[in-house]
C-alpha cells in the first residue's frame, strides 16, 4: 500500500487520539519503524495490521473508524493539498460527485503507483446518486462516506450520505443532494496554492 495512505492512517491516529496511541499501534502491529514515509511503498499486510491494532486499541467499530478517517483526510489542515486537488473535480458538489469516476485516473496522473479505489457514479434522479466503490481491501465505502460528507460541507452543499450495502465487492453509498448552495462552504481559488 502506498505510503501516502499509510501516512494518512498514522496522522489520523496521532492527531485524533495522541502519539501514545500511535506508539501502541506500532507495537501491536509489530512495525519495525516508528513512522510511515509518504513516498515509500509498504506491503499491504502492514496497513491491515495497523488498522486492526488501532480499532482494537480504541474499541471502535471498523466502519466508524474508517468514516472518521475519511473525514479527517479532507478536513485536517496539513492535508489541505488533497482537499484542493479534490476541489478541482468540479465547480459544485454535483459536478464533484460525477468527477469521482475520474478519481483513480487523476490520482495515477500524479502518482502512477497510487492504488485508488475504483468508483462508479450513477445519478438516479435529479437529486439522488448511487456511488459505488471497489478497492483491494474492504472499507472503501465507509471511508468514502466520511470524505463525501466533509466535501459536501466544503462545497457548502446540503447532502445526505449513507451506506447502502455491498454487492459483489462493490460498496454502495446513497447520496441525496438537497441544495447545492446551502451555505458558504470553504473558499477555493484555483490560484490559491503557494508553489
Amino acid at each position: 500500500m502506498h505510503g501516502l495512505i499509510n501516512r494518512a492512517l498514522q496522522s489520523f491516529v496521532e492527531v485524533t487520539y495522541g502519539p501514545r496511541i500511535w506508539a501502541e499501534v506500532v507495537s501491536q502491529a509489530d512495525l519495525e519503524f516508528d513512522e510511515f514515509q509518504s513516498m515509500l511503498m509498504y506491503p499491504d499486510d502492514l496497513t491491515v495490521r495497523c488498522f486492526e491494532a488501532a480499532t482494537n486499541i480504541l474499541h471502535r467499530p471498523p466502519s466508524v473508524f474508517l468514516e472518521d478517517l475519511g473525514t479527517f483526510v479532507v478536513t485536517h489542515e496539513p492535508f489541505n493539498p488533497l482537499r484542493r486537488l479534490l476541489r478541482f473535480g468540479g465547480e459544485d458538489f454535483a459536478e464533484f460527485l460525477h468527477s469521482l469516476e475520474e478519481l483513480g485516473d487523476r490520482g495515477r496522473l500524479v502518482m502512477p503507483d497510487l492504488d485508488m479505489p475504483d468508483i462508479r457514479v450513477h445519478q438516479e434522479d435529479g437529486q439522488t446518486y448511487e456511488v459505488r466503490a471497489r478497492w483491494k481491501m474492504l472499507g472503501a465505502g465507509p471511508m468514502l462516506l466520511g470524505a463525501l460528507r466533509a466535501m459536501a460541507d466544503d462545497y457548502g452543499a446540503l447532502a445526505f450520505c449513507s451506506l447502502a450495502g455491498v454487492n459483489e465487492g462493490w460498496e454502495s453509498l446513497k447520496v441525496t443532494l438537497h441544495l447545492d448552495d446551502h451555505s458558504e462552504g470553504r473558499a477555493f481559488s484555483l490560484g490559491g496554492v503557494s508553489a
Partner: peptide, 11 residues
C-alpha cells in the same frame, strides 16, 4: 494543467 502543477508541487 493546474491540477497537475499543484499535485506535482505537493509530491
Amino acid at each position: 494543467l493546474l491540477y497537475l502543477h499543484e499535485a506535482n508541487t505537493s509530491t
